[in-house]
């Protein structure tokens, strides 16, 4: 169980790093997919962190009506919208 917990944490950390590096180096689809995977499997605040990072990195500063922080909103939707589905995933039969 402890090993499973460790590998689960490693997976989370790896996905988070891929998401952040993806936001800097690759297509915006990479952090978005990573956010989706993280939100689907874990109850992870990292999803919000990646979303905020993408918006802070690339979104011009200004009124929220001019520049909508799409990735932050997507992160919030993913984190809370997938909660019922994730509740099923987070339980595993021993």
């Amino acid at each position: 169980m402890f090993m499973s917990y460790l590998s689960s944490n490693n997976l989370r950390a790896a996905l988070f790093v891929i998401g952040v590096l993806g936001a800097i180096f690759t297509s915006p689809w990479v952090p978005l997919v990573v956010m989706g995977l993280l939100a689907l499997r874990f109850r992870a605040p990292e999803v919000l962190a990646i979303g905020v990072f993408v918006d802070f990195m690339w979104l011009p500063f200004g009124s929220i009506t001019v520049a909508i922080p799409l990735f932050t909103l997507a992160a919030i939707v993913l984190v809370w919208g997938l909660e019922p589905l994730r509740s099923k995933f987070l339980f595993s039969v021993k």
């Binding site: 109850r43 979303g51 932050t72 919030i76 339980f91 595993s92």
Partner: peptide
């Protein structure tokens, strides 16, 4: 049944709620 992510669902949701509030505050 074993909870493989965060131990308690309620605690996990609280953490998410806290993180969401932090995000709004950061913005």
């Amino acid at each position: 049944m074993k909870f493989s992510g965060l131990r308690e669902p309620v605690q996990g949701r609280r953490m998410l709620l806290f993180a969401t509030i932090v995000v709004v505050l950061v913005f």
